[in-house]
Computed example of a mutant assay.
Amino acid sequence: ILYCYFAVFSPMRGPRNSHNFGDTFFVSSRGLNMPAALAADGFWPFVISVVLAIVAIVLMARWANKRFEATGVPFHKFWAGLALFIVIPALCALIFGAPLHWEMPKLQGFNFVGGWVLIPELLALTLALTVYTAAFIAEIVRSGIKSVSHGQTEAARSLGLRPGPTLRKVIIPQALRVIIPPLTSQYLNLAKNSSLAAGIGYPEMVSLFAGTVLNQTGQAIEVIAITMSVYLAISISISLLMNWYNKRIALIER
């Protein structure tokens, strides 16, 4: 729908007739032109500081868990972790400079120069797959939560747990046993449904292999076999990762 709008019905036929939003974003039939983030001198020190912040958060969480088990005194892990994640990279940016600088799109001739462009085909594909898959995932999560007996919620309330901790520590761990298997299928469908981008002219993997490569080489069997192998590798990787996570969160019965 978005592709048809931009390509057929939109009066913005070219960059010169594009809609200008603060001399920063430009919308036309060719897509959405926006500023592009480019690495500056402080980029790699900033990346290292983010990694160090994550390591510090993990160590802090382990220390807080041991402290809670030993003394029973809770520690505000969320706020402490958020402070570490903000303060450490911020100090790095102050010392080494900004990690990024922005390249603004500028109209030169008949097209924009610089910045980054989001073409209508990619936007339409992203929105379509997001809305379609999110509807199924939302139903999977809802059914998983509903599968947990309401007695679990009542038991948590009788222990004095608030709704937030009840959901995180009681309901979700039990619901994941129902959520993960169909969620794996949806992730697999999402990877395979991306091939529908060829129908709206977006150059994704199927159109690249079965179109460009096949036309240049003429080796139909080999090209299709390579395409199938790539999708098979992606599907197996997703399945292995989700099965590992499913085994990790499974309740161990004695």
Rank of each mutant, 00 (worst) to 15 (best):
I1W: 14
C4D: 15
Y5K: 03
A7N: 13
A7I: 03
P11H: 05
M12Y: 14
G14Q: 15
S18A: 11
S18M: 02
F21E: 14
F21R: 06
F21S: 09
G22W: 15
F26W: 11
V27Q: 11
V27L: 12
S29R: 09
G31K: 00
G31P: 02
L32N: 09
N33Q: 12
A39S: 10
G42V: 00
F43C: 00
F43N: 04
F46W: 10
V51H: 06
V51F: 12
L52C: 05
L52M: 05
I54G: 09
I54M: 13
V55G: 09
I57P: 09
V58Q: 09
V58N: 08
M60N: 10
M60Q: 11
R62L: 12
N65P: 04
N65T: 08
E69R: 06
A70K: 04
T71S: 08
V73N: 11
K77T: 11
W79Y: 12
G81V: 04
A83V: 04
L84A: 04
V87Y: 13
I88L: 06
I88W: 11
P89E: 13
C92Y: 11
C92Q: 12
I95R: 07
L100D: 10
L100K: 03
W102H: 09
F112S: 01
V113T: 11
G115A: 00
V117N: 12
L118W: 12
I119T: 12
E121W: 01
L123W: 08
A124D: 15
A128F: 14
A128Y: 13
Y132E: 15
T133H: 06
F136R: 07
F136E: 12
A138G: 09
I140M: 03
V141K: 02
G144N: 02
I145A: 05
K146P: 06
K146C: 08
S147L: 00
V148I: 05
S149G: 02
H150P: 05
Q152K: 00
T153W: 15
T153C: 09
E154P: 03
R157G: 09
S158N: 10
L161Y: 07
L161G: 03
G164V: 13
G164F: 12
P165M: 00
T166R: 02
V170Y: 04
V170H: 04
I171P: 08
I172K: 01
L183M: 07
S185K: 02
Y187M: 14
Y187L: 11
A191P: 06
N193C: 02
S194G: 06
S195I: 01
A197I: 04
G199I: 09
G199T: 15
I200C: 02
Y202N: 07
P203L: 08
E204L: 00
M205D: 13
V206H: 11
S207G: 07
F209R: 07
F209H: 09
N215L: 12
E222G: 05
A225G: 08
I226W: 13
V230T: 05
A233V: 11
S235M: 12
I238V: 08
N246M: 07
R248V: 05
L251Q: 15
E253Y: 07
